[in-house]
Amino acid sequence: MRAGDLNRRVRIEQRGQGQDDLGQPIDAWAEVATVWCNVRMLTGKETLTSGTDVGTASASIRIRYRTDIANGMRAVVDNVIFNIGAPLPDLAGREYVDLPCTTGSNNG
């Protein structure tokens, strides 16, 4: 994989469980890694949900090969939040992992 193709930084986050000072559970996002990536926007659409226009887009984020990325995590690129689907690793060459993502409908 050519390093020049990986031209953006992506922060991979997972939902973490913790407690505040009073012992109450808090639901927050914890950083797993920050790596270089290539983002390809694939499709976009606009739908009417509960009387509100909602624009969504699907993208593919390619990063170097890793095994610690899972469905349900999120990726943040240039302050845009992407929901990660099932990762698609290059098992033959172990060079990259494609992360199918959606954005626009929620924040993870």
Rank of each mutant, 00 (worst) to 15 (best):
G51R: 01
S105V: 15
V39S: 03
S60W: 13
R94E: 09
D20P: 02
T47V: 04
N79C: 01
D98I: 14
T67I: 10
N38S: 09
V54E: 06
I61Q: 09
A30T: 02
V80T: 12
G51C: 03
R11S: 05
G51H: 00
G16C: 04
N7P: 01
T67S: 15
M73A: 12
D21V: 04
G93P: 08
C101M: 04
A75H: 03
S105M: 13
T47F: 07
S60Y: 06
R64P: 15
L91F: 09
Q17N: 11
N38A: 13
Y96G: 13
I81E: 00
D90V: 14
V97M: 04
V76D: 08
G51T: 06
I26T: 11
F82M: 11
S58W: 09
G85W: 05
D5A: 10
S60M: 14
I12H: 08
W36D: 11
T103Y: 03
F82W: 14
L42D: 13
D5C: 08
Q14A: 01
A92D: 05
P100F: 00
N83M: 04
W29R: 00
Q17H: 00
E31T: 12
S58E: 12
V32Q: 03
I26N: 07
R62S: 15
R8M: 04
S58D: 11
P100T: 07
D53H: 05
D90I: 13
A28G: 06
A59W: 03
A57S: 08
G44V: 10
T52Y: 03
Q19F: 01
E46G: 13
Q14M: 03
G18V: 00
T56K: 01
L88A: 07
R94T: 13
A75G: 10
E13N: 13
D68R: 13
M41G: 10
T102M: 11
R15V: 04
A30S: 13
T34F: 02
